[in-house]
Amino acid sequence: MRRTRKTCPVCEMGVRVVDYKDERTLQRFITDRGKILPRRLSGTCARHQRQLGTAIKRARHIALLPFIRTTA
């Protein structure tokens, strides 16, 4: 049996354009290490995944998000 398709969490938030300054939202879409979560895990739609990718990279550049987080 096929699983029901996940719905895009960004669409559900009612956000049309992802803001790179909103680090709290972006935090949800990166791993503990700071990598961008793939679509198959986050369930975002293609449009928002593209936007998230750009936004996370921009947020990294202005030190809102880490490039990498080393844990212990």
Binding site: V17, V18, D19, Y20, R50, Q51, G53, T54, A55, R58, H61
Partner: peptide
């Protein structure tokens, strides 16, 4: 038209 997409405006980003 979409500012937060990578597309066209990318080259003007101050990286």
């Amino acid at each position: 038209a979409d500012p937060s997409k990578g597309g066209g405006p990318k080259d003007e980003e101050g990286t």
